[in-house]
Design a protein around this nucleic acid. Structure first.
Lengths: 178, 178
DNA sequence: TTGACAATACCGTCCAGACGGTACAGTTAC
DNA sequence: GTAACTGTACCGTCTGGACGGTATTGTCAA
């Protein structure tokens, strides 16, 4: 009952994210991931020879996807800030928070290094693109705060409040005072 | 020595936070905590009858401390917003990030509920104190973003950048009520 | 005053289960 | 034939936590 062609890696990665979300970040066992992906444990370890490699791939795929989307938007003519705002807001509205991030952190905090490096590069790109650094920082960290709340599951903000926030942010980054 | 040790609970809680910080959020074992606290595992389990109770106490003590400090500042005449800004900034500058939070989350995401509830209450209090809700939201989430970066270990921001940010924030939330 | 009992605050040991990882023989698609 | 698996069996380690024991202090009736 096998169709062994290889989107296996993607299926496994997606399964890992699902398991992390459903059973909690601390319960990401290889057995659970293999079962969820419809793969044997042997098969999982064939694709990712250790749990550490799985985690690294999980983190890397997230960073790559974000950068890809961002660069596509910029090449299509959108401003960097606008694209960042839009993509991050989209991430905030997704049903599945990226709790796999916590799984990676629980396994070994060093696995987050690619994410923090990515964030640092992103901020640098945004800084190079504005004349109002302070305003940019405010906007950037507000978005990061919103995103982290989503990660921590907090549905702290109502719809109307979020709209209020998202409406104000671009005006701050534009250098205008309310 | 023979006399029952005073403040065992506090020592254990502090030890748990230390272990979480030093060995990573996923490696918070009772053995490690007991050893660090200078208590046997049996003694630990006497004070906190399960790991879950330990985590809950860890979370609760954080929330209580924050609220206590905040209320003291307000009673001493500081405005709520100013106190919130100051206390959160202080937390960001502390050497020891609160990685125990991730330990709690790894154990069971539900343990974070008191924290998110606390955050929600805090935001509500701040909202009731301002006429410019949108501005407040920006400031609040920017601070939360800064804090979460600290938690994720990201030393993303340099000293000068943080000063730039912290200088701008109060001006955005300038709309005060009566 | 004292002896009996109980509560408090631990210590040290043990154990069942979960987990990551290995090994390897068999199976299927190309 | 080979890459990409499956399936099973197994190992060593770690972990939460149950349990029984112990020392000190407190209470209180006779």
């Amino acid at each position: 009952m096998t169709t062994p062609r290889a989107n296996s890696r993607e299926r496994i990665l997606a399964a890992a994210a699902e398991v992390a979300r459903e059973t909690g970040p601390g319960s990401l066992s290889l057995d659970a991931v293999a079962q969820r992906a419809g793969v044997s444990k042997g098969g999982l370890l064939y694709n990712f020879p250790s749990k550490a490699k799985l985690m690294q791939a999980l983190v890397a795929s997230y960073v790559e996807e974000f950068d890809r989307d961002l660069n596509e938007a910029v090449e299509a003519g959108e401003t960097l800030l606008s694209a960042y705002l839009r993509l991050t807001a989209k991430a905030c509205e997704r049903d599945e928070p990226a709790t796999w991030l916590f799984s990676a952190m629980a396994e070994d905090p060093d696995f987050l290094e690619p994410v923090t490096a990515h964030r640092r590069r992103l901020l640098d790109r945004l800084k190079a693109d504005t004349s109002d650094v302070a305003g940019l920082l405010v906007v950037f960290f507000a978005m990061e705060g919103l995103l982290s709340m989503k990660l921590f599951d907090g549905t702290i903000l109502g719809q109307d409040e979020r709209e209020l926030l998202m409406e104000r942010l671009p005006r701050i980054a534009a250098g205008r005072r309310a």
